[in-house]
Simulated scan of single mutants.
Amino acid sequence: MVDPTRGVLYPSHLPTFHRLAPDAEAADAVAWFWIPEWRLPEGAVSRQELVSYPAVNLVVAPEGVTISGATTRASTRELRGAGWAVGALLRPAAVAALVDDAAVLVDAEHPFDAPDLHAAVTAAMGRDERHRETAVSAFSAWLSQRIGPLGAAGWQANALVDVLWGERAALTPEEAATRLAVSVRTLQRLTHRTVGLAPGAIIRRRRLQEAAQRLRDEPETDLAALAAALGYADHAHLSRDFSAVLGLPPRDYRARASG
């Protein structure tokens, strides 16, 4: 898995947070599970700011199950009191088995009818110190049963993950299509159906996540060199993308993240 703080704009503000691998039976359905747990003093608020992965998430919380799509801007959640969530960052093949069209989920969150999943994960989260692993096992088993064995279309859809935002990911939709041995138009249909975004938007989101992480971890990074390393034409192009999604330019974010 990637660094557990990637996509989190201010990791120091996080509550207890874990990313766990799925059980083997669900490895084709889930990239990873993410589990925040918090207990805040009365009246306190923890503000979480994220540049989410370009993916669909299925989330179990005490109040129910929801499914949320890819986002086009940085997002914010405010945590109060005490609580937890168990989220599954879904691989494309799982999305196709759970929803008809991921595009309708973009920038949205909807209730998802899965009372048996909710009951199993909620019971697991109330157990001993291994509650997170128990919850992941229950979630993995539910997904495996719900989705079943992958067919050729599922394997092809999952290949998108590695090519568009895995290690050594493609820098352009054309490169991604070539590596997948499909046309750019076929790639566009696949990402629209299983992610809800165009290939170029997925690539840009990955690059912005990497840019934010580098600016936090390596505050002396030269912005022009960072832009070139991430495939941007120049520093100005990176700054435009960064400001459009995060709401502030790279220099300001670096100062805020290191402050």
Rank of each mutant, 00 (worst) to 15 (best):
V2M: 15
D3A: 06
D3I: 03
P4A: 14
G7Q: 13
L9G: 01
H13G: 12
H18C: 03
E25I: 02
A29P: 06
V30A: 05
A31C: 02
A31P: 08
F33P: 00
I35G: 03
I35V: 01
E42G: 08
G43F: 05
E49G: 10
L50A: 03
V56K: 05
A70W: 03
R73W: 14
A85M: 10
V86P: 05
A94K: 02
V95F: 10
A96F: 14
A97T: 12
A103N: 02
H110N: 12
P111D: 01
P115I: 01
D116W: 09
H118C: 03
T122K: 00
A123P: 01
A123Q: 06
R127E: 15
R127S: 13
H131M: 04
H131N: 04
H131R: 15
S144I: 02
R146L: 06
R146F: 07
I147L: 07
A152E: 09
Q156V: 00
D162V: 11
E167H: 15
E167P: 12
A169L: 02
E174C: 11
E175N: 04
A177I: 01
V184L: 01
L187M: 11
Q188P: 06
R189V: 00
T191S: 00
T191N: 00
R193K: 14
R193L: 09
V195Q: 07
G196W: 14
L197A: 00
A201P: 02
R205L: 15
R206N: 04
R207A: 07
L208S: 11
Q209P: 01
Q209T: 02
E210P: 10
A211M: 09
A212N: 04
Q213E: 15
Q213S: 15
A229E: 15
G231F: 06
R240P: 04
D241W: 03
D241L: 02
A244W: 05
G247H: 12
L248G: 12
P249S: 07
D252A: 11
Y253H: 15
Y253D: 08
A257I: 03
